[in-house]
């Protein structure tokens, strides 16, 4: 039994929180779209990949880092809106399962196009501020992890301000609560659906760009990250943003501790175990409530 120092735990915790922040951004993308349009968008992970890939490509074209990142996020936001316009809106009266199949098709198509454009080779995105890792209470932290947490926090704050303190944000929420009554007040609910797709694609692109320096960028990176974000969203009940934040962070920390203290081989299994526990818990909770009533 190896001995661990406090600094080891801190290190695992911070890595967990930083990777968890990525899951949070993706999970919030899932629930934003789900709340407004009722669609579970299985192409969410592809927006993550596109964000990172486009940033790499734009850097390669000679753009400085910040413009490259911003242009990439803007482009992916547009891709999100276009995806909704072309694939979801025409089918919005179709059953939920059909819509999910459509998003799955979109995911496969985007991944395929990614393979065509960028091939199978992994690309690297430089760290935002290269340099020696920081030492905090004995734990060694790469600077990029600090960036990940900082950027995620900023995105969360912007999202909070938008949804709680602007009329447009409230109109989007109104559509997610009661589309008909929002429409009757003059809210263009299909524009709000477009917006929700754009916001959520843009957020995922940010996630892709901040994680890229740690993981390398490949055409299929969206698969795994999208799945983790989805699981975090489900852990949070699919509707509540604070719960999705908790879900993402818990998942990241669980993975990090399993990988650090046990073996990294079962790291991915942890996500599915967590999903299993949450789903079983839900079901038991539901059936218990049903029995009581």
């Amino acid at each position: 039994m190896p001995q661990y120092a406090l600094s080891d735990y801190i290190q695992l915790l911070v890595s967990g929180v930083s990777i968890g922040s990525i899951y949070v951004l993706i999970a919030l993308g899932f629930i934003t779209i789900y709340n407004v349009t009722g669609v579970i968008n299985l192409a969410q992970g592809e927006f993550v990949m596109l964000g990172a890939m486009l940033a790499v490509t734009l850097l390669g074209l000679g753009l400085p880092f910040i413009p490259a990142a911003l242009v990439s996020v803007a482009l992916v936001t547009c891709v999100g809106v276009i995806t909704h316009r072309l694939t979801i809106q025409p089918a919005r009266h179709a059953p939920e399962v059909s819509l999910i199949m459509i998003t799955l098709g979109t995911a496969i198509a985007v991944r395929g196009l990614g393979l065509l454009f960028w091939g199978t080779i992994p690309y690297a995105l430089p760290e935002f501020t290269p340099g020696a890792p920081l030492q905090i209470m004995g734990a060694v932290l790469s600077r990029q992890r600090i960036w990940i947490m900082g950027v995620a926090l900023v995105v969360l704050i912007i999202l909070y301000l938008f949804f709680e303190h602007t009329l447009l944000g409230k109109a989007v929420r109104a559509c997610s609560i009661n589309r008909g009554s929002a429409e009757v007040s003059g809210v263009d609910s299909s524009a709000m659906s477009h917006l929700s797709y754009g916001i959520s694609a843009g957020m995922s692109a940010v996630a892709g760009i901040v994680i890229a320096p740690l993981t390398l960028v490949t055409y299929d990176m969206g698969l795994g990250l999208g799945l983790k974000g989805f699981i975090a969203a489900i852990m949070g009940g699919m509707v509540s943003a604070p719960a999705a934040v908790a879900g993402g962070l818990v998942l990241g920390v669980l993975e990090s501790f399993t990988a650090g203290l046990l073996t990294s081989g079962i790291k991915d299994g942890v996500a599915f175990l967590a999903l299993f526990v949450v789903l079983v818990g839900r079901t038991m909770n539901l059936s218990m409530r049903r029995r009581r009533s």
């Binding site: 301000l161 009329l167 929002a182």
Partner: peptide, 19 residues
Amino acid sequence: LLGGYKHHAGRLRDLLGPI
């Protein structure tokens, strides 16, 4: 506020400014 949304629908400042 949302009931009166139509008065603000075309105005970016109203939509994105703080409530």
